[in-house]
Design a protein around this nucleic acid. Structure first.
Length: 915
RNA sequence: GCCCGGGUGGCGUAAUAGGUAGACGCGGCGGUCUUAAACACCGCUGUCCUUCGGGGCGUGGGGGUUCAAGUCCCUCCCCGGGCACCA
């Protein structure tokens, strides 16, 4: 019987769905496991990256189920977002239609994976049944003072006509489109994520990848120091945050951000023109320009002065764009002697430099002659009350000089200990149509209140122009009445789509629940998520937001009902709602395959230093002297080719009338049909290096594709696709088919052979169990391939008894079931089993059978392997040494010197040190 | 510049606690089968030397600890990711 993957996979997918094999139901008598994969955006087609992210997590969920857990493994769609609006503008389809069509297509493609998703739990974030509760959460956040309206300088994308959160801006560009972002002052909705900064820095009790924890920690950017108030001569006061209050005595000037509110009042008439000019220039400077490396310090003196509160000195106040309004108070005290930026600024504008730290084991510094700031340890000088105090490299109060300064400042009421964060509050307003409406209304009397009725539905027939959001002009949407029945206006902004994905794992529990975001009965059993997998690119956005959401929901009592149900069932709710996901893992990325360019033979002539082609011919085997230019095509445009010849890189111009010949492509050829070199990079349609999973599934079957993806890469790393390697995966699957479906006929059977096969099988159980627990798919499959090799070897020799054969074959099938669910199910049922293989208990290795009968004792002389001897695994030290000494090969080495030392690690190693 | 990963055959990768480097697969080479090719099957495959017993070298470079280092320490180089005038 031949292996027909198409028939088998289709049939089993239908049967599993029909008999509800993957329905998950609360069962308090069984341990639960909530497995979750980051939900996809319904972009249209499933690509290799989806398969790479989703099939291993499916295998993990299946493994946990066979291990005895009641597993919940849901799937859904992150369905709001910009591409739907772009499609609306470009192709005149409604975003909802475009989105739902894509979801239908992706659901079909997802089914072809053979994953164990419980589709009755599916949630789609653009469904009113879903976004009603996103709005509801916004309202709770508003009532609980987490959501607030604030004015701030925001990142405005002219391309997208919307604002973006800080996290969504990378190198001054929008992380999605790569288009520039400008600074703009606007009133918007924010979430007070900074209230949770300290709790978000605490990762105790959650098993998350170290790099993600590090990235979140860096992103939050906590720094400890003091806030000190400087009085201005105008009578105003400016609070300043500093991590080095101990260096206050060395503060010789102050710098404000150009946008700082007190700049106007401070500026003297004589400086006004210069200040205004600088401020205009700074405002026009894009974020990208401001971040250009090695920029010279720029700034302008305001003409105003402040008083250093620790010594009463009059210090000048400058403005400069190296001080950011968004960090701290937008003002700094400058200590040029001990801060490199301040030092550069001081030298640039000839401001005084006063050292207050004497370096360890060195003379006092000289402010006039020093060449760079000093930031190392030493002792305080010129610092009045803290003179002589030691200063170290430690941060905050752990540094004695900082602690002394803070104490002194607070005693006097000049300043106090303070903590500052790099992270800003989360800006969630988006000037878009295709998102969850922010359920707020602006009353005629100026009061802002929550919409009384939810959901606030998106209008169905928006007018898309490609310009500003259609919601801003849709009167039928905007006109509403407030809680007192008076006319009012709706908020026209929608919510950042990261809001939808911050709580979807709760909606999955009960996607149709009508009275709360989730059913407390389900939540009490399933929460929290036990295993969460996805891409590391979400480390500082999605994964930080979702942690914040859970904590805010907890504090607003959203989980109270679930906690009560937990108690009823004897489960302690303490700590259950502090973090959304207990364990998290990241998969790497599948990149495109490297591809050589065509080998070209080009005829033509040199003209003004350029080569102009008359004919271009593809010939993979052309000798390097077959024409004037022969080499690999590296890059091409419509009229020029870059060719790497044996010794040079040549740019060839191809006029329209040049003759192009590409064998295998009929008709008149042109340069665009030439294949250029492609290095390893991300798969993308425009580069033409995508691999279509649907085609591979049709040709090889989902089981082979799943197996290959899990075998060929270190899952956490990913790497470039290699189209050749998949044949090995297919061969393995076919061997499993043969092993399982072809009757085994024992020949001259030996107990040793039978036991050896059983040993191999039981050792495989141990390895595969350990590897699957740790997401090490490649080594789990390598172990299964070894067992396959042993089974094929046993069949060839016909030397094992039937029981041993069957036991090993069954173990192979059951261990492979999570990775290749269809073929294992089919073979299992062909072997006269009536219950699904996916309901079988995960096998336990019998240590007696798995134990090796002999092990290889390595004998080293001076640390180099000189012989190997088979010995019993429980050999004692004395016997091992004796066996080593007795070896003929070792005897020879022993003649070369005297044994000085013997190290024995029975049963694996004996090392003889001779000299 | 700072913070994380990482560097092992032609390629993807593997190596619980410092103890046989290269498991497993791809590719390659040789053979069987075939009129032939493909498939399948069998064998070999880090590298150099070899009297075919074996020996030298080998995990980015250099140094160190140890009986023993891919693994630990110091230092440098390269690649990937994150952050970056953060007071």
């Amino acid at each position: 019987m031949a292996y027909d993957h198409q028939k088998i996979e289709r049939e089993w997918q239908d049967r599993w769905e029909a008999n509800g094999l993957y329905r998950s139901v609360v069962d308090w008598d069984r341990p639960k496991h909530y497995a979750l994969t980051m939900l996809p955006y319904p972009s249209g087609d499933l690509h290799m990256g989806h398969w790479y992210a989703m099939t291993p997590s499916d295998a993990r969920a299946r493994f946990m189920r066979m291990k005895g857990f009641n597993v919940l493994f849901p799937m859904g769609f992150d369905a709001f977002g910009l591409p739907a609006e772009n499609a609306a503008v470009q192709r005149n389809v409604h975003p909802a239609d475009w989105t739902w069509d894509n979801i239908d297509r992706m659901r079909r493609q997802l089914r072809s994976m053979g994953a164990m998703y419980d589709w009755e739990r599916e949630a789609v974030s653009c469904d009113p049944e879903y976004y009603k509760w996103t709005e509801w959460l916004f309202r709770r956040f508003f009532e609980g003072d987490i959501a607030y309206r604030g004015e701030a300088i925001v990142n405005w994308s002219p391309t997208l006509q919307t604002v973006l959160a800080n996290e969504q801006v990378i190198d001054g560009r929008d992380e999605r489109t790569g288009q520039p972002v400008v600074q703009k002052k606007m009133e918007q909705w924010f979430f007070a994520i900074t209230k949770y900064a300290d709790e978000l820095l605490d990762f105790t009790g959650i098993d998350w990848p170290e790099p993600v924890k590090a990235m979140q920690t860096n992103w939050i950017g906590r720094s400890e120091g003091a806030e000190v108030v400087f009085a201005l001569e105008t009578g105003d006061e400016i609070p300043v945050f500093t991590t080095r209050p101990d260096t206050l005595w060395g503060a010789t000037f102050m710098v404000l951000a150009p946008e700082h509110g007190l700049v106007d009042a401070l500026t003297t008439d004589g400086q006004r023109a210069a200040v205004d000019e600088y401020r205009t220039a700074a405002a026009g400077r894009s974020e990208i320009e401001r971040m250009e490396a090695d920029r010279e310090k720029s700034g302008v003196f305001t003409g105003g002065y402040a008083v250093n509160p620790v010594n009463g000195e009059r210090i000048p106040v400058w403005i400069a764009d190296y001080v950011l309004l968004s960090y701290g108070s937008g003002a700094i005290m400058a200590v040029p002697a001990h801060d490199q930026r301040d030092f550069e600024f001081a030298r640039q504008f000839e401001l005084s430099v006063v050292p207050v730290i004497r370096p360890v084991g060195a003379d006092s510094l000289d402010g006039d002659s020093m060449l760079e700031s000093y930031v190392g340890p030493g002792s305080m000088v010129n610092s009045g009350p803290i003179d002589g105090v030691e200063t170290t490299d430690a941060k905050g109060r752990a540094n004695p000089s900082v602690a002394a300064a803070i104490d002194w400042l607070s005693e006097r009421g000049i300043g106090e200990e303070a903590v500052n964060y790099r992270m800003r509050d989360w800006l969630i307003s988006r000037q878009r149509y295709w998102g969850g409406p922010i359920p707020m209304i602006f009353r005629a009397d100026g009061v802002i209140e929550a919409a009384p009725e939810l959901p606030v539905l998106l209008p169905e027939a928006p007018a898309f122009t490609g310009g500003p959001s259609p919601l801003t002009t849709d009167e039928s949407f905007l006109e509403t009445t407030d809680s007192e029945g008076e006319p009012a206006r709706r908020e026209s902004d929608t919510m950042d789509t990261f809001m939808c994905s911050s709580w979807y794992h709760y909606r999955y529990l009960s996607p149709h629940f009508g009275t709360a975001p989730f059913d407390p009965e389900e939540a009490a059993y399933w929460l929290p998520v036990d295993t969460y997998t996805g891409g590391a690119e979400h480390a500082t956005m999605h994964l930080l937001y979702t942690r914040f959401f859970t904590k805010a929901m907890r504090d607003l009592g959203v989980f109270d009902d679930a906690a009560r149900v937990m108690v009823e069932h004897g489960r302690d709710p303490e700590g259950m709602f502090d973090e959304p996901m207990t364990q998290s893992r990241n998969q790497g990325q599948i990149l495109g395959e490297e591809r050589p360019g065509d080998r070209l033979v080009i005829a033509g002539e040199w003209l003004d230093g350029r080569f102009v082609a008359e004919s271009v011919r593809v010939d993979d085997h052309a000798a390097s002297d077959a024409g004037p230019i022969v080499g690999e095509l590296i890059r091409r445009t419509e009229r020029s080719l870059q060719v790497r010849t044996a010794d040079a890189m040549v740019t060839v111009e191809v006029p329209e009338d040049a003759e192009v010949e590409v064998p295998g492509i009929d008709g008149i050829n042109d340069v665009t049909q030439l294949r250029h070199y492609l290095e390893v990079q991300r798969m993308s349609k425009s580069k033409g290096n995508t691999v279509n999973p649907d085609e591979l599934v049709e040709r090889y079957g989902a089981d082979t594709v799943r197996l290959y993806l899990m075998f060929a890469f270190d899952w956490e790393k990913g790497g470039p696709w290699d189209s050749r390697g998949i044949s090995g995966a297919r061969r393995f699957i076919e061997d499993v088919w043969k092993i399982g479906t072809t009757a085994y006929e024992p020949g001259s059977v030996s107990d040793d052979s039978s036991l050896a096969l059983r040993r191999s099988a039981h050792q495989t159980i141990t390895k595969v169990s350990r590897d699957m627990e740790a997401f090490k798919w490649n080594t789990a499959i390598a172990a299964l391939m070894t067992l396959r090799n042993d089974l094929l070897d046993a069949r060839r020799k016909a030397s094992v008894d039937l029981d041993a054969w069957n036991e090993a074959a069954n173990i192979l099938l059951v261990l492979l079931a999570p990775i290749a669910p269809h073929i294992t199910e089919e073979v299992w049922s062909l072997r006269d089993n009536t219950e699904s293989i996916h309901l079988q208990a995960w096998p336990e290795a019998d240590p007696k059978i798995a134990a090796d009968q002999t092990v290889t004792l390595v004998v080293q002389v001076n640390g180099k392997v000189r012989d190997r001897i088979d010995v019993s695994p429980d050999i004692d030290e004395e016997t091992a040494i004796a066996a080593a000494m007795a070896s003929e090969r070792i005897q020879e080495w022993l003649t070369k010197g005297e044994v000085r030392k013997v190290i024995a690690r029975p049963p694996n190693l004996v090392n003889l040190v001779i000299s």
